[in-house]
Amino acid sequence: MEPTIYASLEDVTLSFGENVILKNCNLKIVRGAITCIVGLSGAGKSTILRLLDGLIEPSSGHVYVDGHDLCHTPERKLVELRQKTSLAFQFAALLDSLTIGENVGLPLREHTALSDEKIRHIVDDALESVGLRHIYDSLPNELSGGMLKRAGFARAIVTRPELVLYDEPTTGLDPIVTNLITDTIIRLRQKLDGTAVVISHDLHSIFRMADYVAMLFEGAIIAYGPREEIRTSSNPFVQQFLTGNEVGPIPV
């Protein structure tokens, strides 16, 4: 059966002044799958997540999420559409002044009329699903990097979004926590029965969790396909990236 597309970038160009970040970039995100985007540092991978979350608009082209074009959409409509997506930030971006429980429950408190008791129950469940118990009353500055990231995941999934975007979830973590985070992403995708996009540099983690892999280079997706197809790709750019070789078409 042909996979259905949940989100896509179509001919997206994004530039800030003379600095071109994305150039005629095309990408398809398959519904119900984990798509990992790889590429050099500063290639614009995180920018793709922000486009998919409607936080920035492309200079030209279109960004579709669940059939809705996010471009030129009024902020009020975007707020509505953002209920379908959720972004887990690289450094969690939890609000310093709130406890972990308040942070995770914030979207529910602001967007629903659920009782405090019900919200507490959902937040506890979300924290449980990322393996964090008993930290409801902790402040963000009391947690380790890995715990912060998982708390960020809990906030991202608490509203049960259809699309979860993970920005470099394993960067800067030790191998054990990296494995834990990777397992968590796989488990959360299954739990939500939704779609996920992950930006990562960790190849071991990527090939464990990805259903599809896309490689971004010089503002465009130069390789895209199922995990195994990319792993065995003869594309010299992909090969150089996967092997980490300094010699090849990618200038060092």
Binding site: V79, R82, L87, L94, L95, P107
Partner: peptide, 10 residues
């Protein structure tokens, strides 16, 4: 990125 996080949460 806390401001982006707020906007991301709608």
């Amino acid at each position: 990125e806390q401001i982006d996080a707020l906007r991301s949460m709608g």
